[in-house]
């Protein structure tokens, strides 16, 4: 008891500061979590909350339906592969861009190029999709224009399973690289210029400085963002794919989210959608725990 009092006396101020956050989280995040039970019931979208709570549990029916889906493994593979490709390209790209922008000494050039680089972040996905058609369209698309000029046959890139994922990844890098670099630039701003000066005097090369000063200095951001990215692996970019795909590329493009969207669209399958959502959450949790463990193993601060 005195122990509790001692802790409270010493740290009470900080608990008090945290209180609003805790209250917020409990009300707006934890209370609605009772909705998770929808995954284990047969709920239609016009049942009242009372009916949802009192309706009987039906076990894992919706999970089993999903696992038994003809395309289950296809969907898993597409979701993970698209996500992994995207991570491989769009995770390092902002770090690289931030490093390059950081080496610019002209303040105006720095600000302007940085501001321009995140323009695409403000385009909603419909606009981006529209631009993708302009670039890759068969008739009059910019790429096909070049293909024809060099004597080739126009290709339908968006309908071609060999090209579709490349277009997805490229679009994602284009749209996220500038915005993603902001956090890294902020972290670089916190680094001590004296360290660089000392390194310069010691004759360290640019590459050595990046390796031994800049990267370690921003590693806390890199690591936590990487952990988050791993936890996000099952979100392969729903809206982007929905706007760009078509039946000809389903085999490489149909992901869990687009499948559930189509399945639920006409039939209002709320419980089914919840079950798939919960399944994704559990996988995400496992991935996050693994990534966190790995971060600790490398000696970094992870999530906790």
């Amino acid at each position: 008891m005195t122990e509790v009092l001692r802790i409270l006396r010493k740290h009470g101020f900080y608990y008090l500061l945290f209180l609003p956050v805790a209250v917020y989280l409990i009300i707006f995040k934890y209370v609605p979590m009772i909705g998770i039970m929808i995954a284990f019931k047969d709920v239609t979208p016009f049942m009242s909350m009372g009916e949802i709570v009192t309706s009987s549990f039906i076990g894992f029916k919706h999970f089993v339906n999903f696992f038994n889906s003809f395309f289950f493994w296809d969907l898993m593979e597409n979701t993970l592969m698209i996500s992994i490709y995207k991570t491989l390209w769009s995770f390092p790209a902002p770090i690289l861009l931030a490093l390059l922008i950081n080496e610019v000494h002209n303040t105006y050039f720095k600000r302007i190029s940085q501001t321009i680089s995140y323009l695409p972040h403000f385009f909603s996905m419909v606009i981006v999709a529209g631009l993708v058609y302009v670039v890759f369209g068969v008739q009059g698309g910019l790429v096909n224009h070049l293909v024809v000029l060099t004597g080739g046959e126009p290709q339908h890139y968006l309908g071609d399973p060999r090209w579709f994922r490349t277009i997805l990844v490229g679009t994602t890098v284009w749209q996220t690289v500038g915005w993603g670099s902001i956090l890294y630039l902020a972290a670089m701003a916190g680094l001590n210029p004296e360290t660089y000066e000392a390194a310069n005097i010691d004759g360290a090369s640019k590459i050595q400085q990046v390796r031994h000063i800049t990267l370690p200095g921003i590693s806390h951001v890199i690591v936590i963002l990487f952990i988050f990215r791993i936890g996000d692996l099952l979100d392969a970019g729903f809206e982007q794919i929905l706007l760009l795909y078509s039946p000809s590329v389903y085999e490489v493009a149909d992901i869990i989210d687009t499948y559930v969207y189509r399945a639920g669209l006409l039939n209002l399958k709320y419980s089914f959608a919840s079950a798939v959502g919960l399944y994704k959450s559990i996988l995400a949790l496992l991935l996050l725990l693994a990534a966190n463990k790995f971060a600790h193993f490398l000696g970094h601060q992870g999530i906790w």
Binding site: Q139, G140, P154, H156, L244, S246, P247
Partner: peptide, 19 residues
């Protein structure tokens, strides 16, 4: 058939091309 006919063909754009 237009190559994009089962995909994301922009109907107006094709019409506009006059083909």
């Amino acid at each position: 058939f237009h190559k994009e006919v089962f995909a994301n063909m922009d109907f107006e754009e094709v019409l506009r091309s006059g083909n």
